[in-house]
């Protein structure tokens, strides 16, 4: 009986908490709509851009108070599918060019620009217990990588291929997040993820650099969705992504500038 009561108390606290956040966000949107709002653009973006795009959007709204930006994050391939299916997106920001290129060919997006590049890094637990100093050390240690169906897995396969490495991982993880999880728990000695992932993981993961000539680079692109009813605002946002404020934010997150 007592446990039931405790449970309902916990549930109640949870509900109040949720209601609190719901109220505050409702208040926020009322406040912003009372200003002279002209357009809201929705950006469909690769999950790896989640943190950095939020801060870029804040900068953008400061520069263009009339336009507000909201996001829908998913795997680039999933966002591309959404655009094909007619989802109400205004901008597509993709990781890699494989999802973007067919959309350009099908004229579903226009004005694609390169906004940044990302490359791979070896992630190791703090203290680097297996003393991994480079790609050559991956042969004898417990390595976790992304599964070949995930974009990071494709890049990792390319990396191993490019360097003629035969690495047998102990696990193919579904995504970057789970690779980092295994490193954070110190279950694996090394993992292959993007430079930006190591940076966002914090102190529990340390990066070991891969020399540029051995590395694999992924180019991030942004484009205006052709069917967008806010094409002008969308184009402004895409331009902004290539501009100095956004480029500074991208650099801060570990992205390299587009060539």
């Amino acid at each position: 009986m007592r446990s039931v009561r405790t449970m309902s108390a916990i549930a109640l606290i949870g509900t109040i908490g949720l209601a609190g956040t719901a109220c505050s966000s409702a208040a926020d949107s009322t406040a912003s709509s009372s200003t002279t709002q002209r357009a809201t653009i929705t950006v469909g973006a690769a999950s790896s851009l989640t943190d950095v795009l939020a801060s870029i959007a804040a900068e953008f709204t400061k520069a263009y108070p009339g336009v507000s930006v909201q996001f829908s994050f998913a795997a680039s391939s999933a966002v591309a599918e959404q655009i094909r299916g007619g989802a109400p997106l205004d901008v597509f920001a993709s990781a890699g060019t494989t999802s973007m290129a067919p959309l350009i060919d099908e004229r579903l997006v226009t004005g694609a620009v390169d906004i940044a590049t990302n490359s791979l890094q070896i992630a190791v637990p703090p203290g680097n217990p297996a003393a991994v100093a480079g790609l050559a050390d991956l042969a004898g240690v417990k390595v976790v990588i992304c599964q070949e169906q995930a974009p990071c897995g494709v890049a990792t396969a390319k990396l191993f291929d490019h360097n003629s490495l035969a690495v047998t991982p102990v696990s193919y993880e579904p995504d970057v997040r789970s690779v980092l999880g295994k490193i954070e728990a110190d279950e694996a000695d090394a993992g292959i993820v993007y430079v930006t992932d190591v940076l966002s993981a914090g102190a529990q993961v340390v990066g070991v650099a891969i020399p540029a000539e051995a590395n694999v680079t992924t180019t991030y692109q942004a484009a205006v969705v052709s069917a967008s009813p806010n094409a002008a605002e969308a184009a402004t946002f895409v331009d902004f992504l290539a501009g100095p404020e956004a480029q500074a934010a991208l650099a801060g997150a570990g992205f390299a500038p587009a060539p």
Binding site: Q147, Q149, V170, S171, Y172, E173, P174, K182
Partner: peptide
């Protein structure tokens, strides 16, 4: 399973894990 044991064909990749891996490809 995937959280604790990981995902490696022949060692830890059971049917549900194989289904999940194949879904993306």
């Amino acid at each position: 399973t995937i959280t604790f044991a990981g995902n490696l064909p022949g060692v830890t990749q059971t049917m549900p894990l194989a289904v999940y891996a194949a879904l993306d490809g």
